[in-house]
Design a binder for these strands. Structure first.
Lengths: 353, 353
DNA sequence: TATAAACCTGTTAACGATAACTTAAATTTT
DNA sequence: AAAATTTAAGTTATCGTTAACAGGTTTATA
């Protein structure tokens, strides 16, 4: 049995108390229309005494807008997501929109649940930063075609009525790999997907591109890690996957001398395995991660990684969305790809060199 | 100018299309009441064709409940908050409630804005995990007295109609300090507040208790860091505060030989300062943090810290809230204090000992 | 002074959905 | 076969708010 909420005071109650009509109270509350000073005071007084707080639901229902935007995040524990949320929030707040964050731990079902619950609450628009999946994409398409405003960050989903922001993961992957090649490595492993399942993983594609461009052979046995696992598992636990993958690579005859990991957590897990095996980083094995999470500076040795412009992705996405929301007509689709930056630290180049 | 949303299909539209009344459609959608198979099919068909999606706002307005709970977090980038959100979400999802997260970067104004925006959307209840502040507390009180359901985590706010969950920060602080004393330290500094402003910081109180119990003198000059700064600044930037505070302590004549930092970020910042000064941890200076963030294992040396049972705090808070929401009458206030656990690593006890 | 413009407040009808009630047919029970 | 019950819809009113319009009154302008 659900408790009935104590019936809260409404516009009507205030109106009665102040001896005016609800409409007048509404005008006072929203500070529009004409209200005489005397009436305003009376109403304000009643509002204070009766502790009235407007029912946003009713208001939104009437206005057909909520001044709220939704952000769907895959893994809230991932510093990347957190930073994104910060940036989005900064922009939306400034422009007078509330932000509701909904988390979907990377399953299609939860994705859809998150979309629907935000849509049901009629957020004015949605920023989606979860990974692509069939059912979720379809759902998104339908929502967009219904006039729902959507901006995607990083998600491999494209629609002519939705804007899109992403880091150039492919190029980032390329540069990470190229860096290892420049350091003299020729046997470079990849942790985080496998050859057949990595088609959609841009970072991995960049890795392949770099090998090809340098006429290095792609060795399937150097590529390990199930394609989904790293995404399904929440942030910090991908560390374990990195650890296990590295174990496999270490057991290989004629093993790689350098590793590119799909993200920093994976890389850090791999580092544990390397150290556990009594090998030195970067002398015996060099390693590059991706994302430049705050932890990357503090590992030992510090982790070379690819930094993506997280804040900018967030704020640009927010700008796109607000523009879309406030536009009279659905505007042209906007797309922005941002450059990544290779951050060289001690895990690829020995300190002091 | 705000774009008018393409008028979306409503119950009425479906009703017209299917040749029935809105009520019948409602019955089909909500699967209650009697509907014949034939009618149901017709309606279902129309729903599918016209891509109807229920307006949750209207529904909630009528039902006076939203099946949604709100979580107010101080700093989304803080792993503690992230873990909390995870745990809360797990419970609420399982019980059929959506979770909306709102972030308030620890200012009273934003706190209140977050409360209000969630309240305006009529979430069925609120879990508040931000730090206490005068205006926010007052606002919370009013909301509770209006029948709003609230559970606090860690926040130093008490109300007879709101449940409360927290880690035993005082005891945790005590144990951290006692550990340093057990290691032979007598000159123990604290980073994160000052003597006058630390009354509300339980961890600091625990530190004082431990000194007292061991008949060690409290040296005001060993206690540094402004009381609010660490909270106002978002997570990762408190690192800087720790760094600066440590610099000050290092400059002291007859400086401390051990440090207890109010949280791990602060501790990590302090470690940077110590290493930069060419001192060894723990030989020249031992250090203890608080929270056991994932990074703590990976610092060099690894960080001794106090772990709080984050997940349990989140899930217990969620349980309390749902119980409160679903109770016929406001239930008795519940309160739960959870034990912390000292995790000894290399920053206090040299590795291999 | 006549007339336009600005000011103040009220009335009505929604926004989209549903609870509670009603009517009427189809089943079941006695 | 009559009464009781179940099934299947429809009707009405309402959740709390606001846009749009309509009257009045006061002030400014020609």
């Amino acid at each position: 049995m659900i408790a009935k909420k104590k019936k809260s005071t409404t516009l009507n109650d205030i109106a009665t108390a102040a001896g005016v009509t609800p409409m007048t109270v509404s005008r006072v509350v929203n500070q529009n229309g004409y209200v005489s000073d005397g009436t305003r005071d009376k109403v304000l007084q009643a509002i204070k005494e009766m502790k009235y707080r407007p029912n946003g639901l009713a208001r939104s229902l009437k206005l057909r807008r909520t001044q709220t935007v939704g952000l769907v995040l895959g893994d809230i524990a991932n510093p990347f997501a957190a930073e994104l949320a910060r940036a989005v929030r900064e922009v939306t707040m400034l422009r007078g929109y509330n932000l509701f964050i909904s988390v979907s731990e990377h399953s299609a079902k939860e994705d859809i649940a998150a979309f629907d619950s935000l849509a049901a609450h009629l957020v004015d628009g949605l920023i989606v930063a979860t990974r692509s999946n069939r059912a979720g994409d379809k759902h998104l398409s339908e929502m967009i075609e219904h006039g729902f405003r959507v901006v995607c960050i990083g998600r491999d989903f494209h629609h002519e009525n939705a804007d899109w922001v992403s880091a150039d993961n492919r190029k980032g992957g390329f540069e990470a790999t190229q860096h290892l090649i420049d350091c003299g490595h020729t046997k470079i492993g990849f942790i985080g997907t496998n050859l057949s399942g990595g088609a959609s993983l841009k970072r991995f594609q960049g890795y392949l591109d770099a090998l090809k461009e340098n006429n290095l052979e792609v060795e399937e046995r150097f590529i390990t890690g199930s394609p989904e696992a790293s995404d399904e598992a929440p942030g910090y636990s991908t560390e374990k996957l990195g650890y296990e993958a590295m174990k496999r690579l270490l057991a290989l005859p004629n093993r790689p001398t350098a590793i590119f990991a799909r993200n920093d957590f994976t890389a850090i897990g791999a580092m544990s395995a390397i150290k556990e095996a009594g090998l030195r980083i970067p002398h015996d094995l060099a390693i590059v991660g991706f994302d430049d999470i705050p932890m990357a500076v503090h590992t030992s040795p510090s982790l070379t990684t690819v930094r993506q412009p997280t804040r900018r992705q967030g704020s640009i996405a927010a700008e796109f969305l607000l523009k879309r929301i406030e536009a009279a007509e659905q505007p042209e689709r906007e797309e922005k790809v941002l450059e990544c930056e290779l951050i060289v630290r001690d895990s690829t180049v020995a300190a002091g060199k």
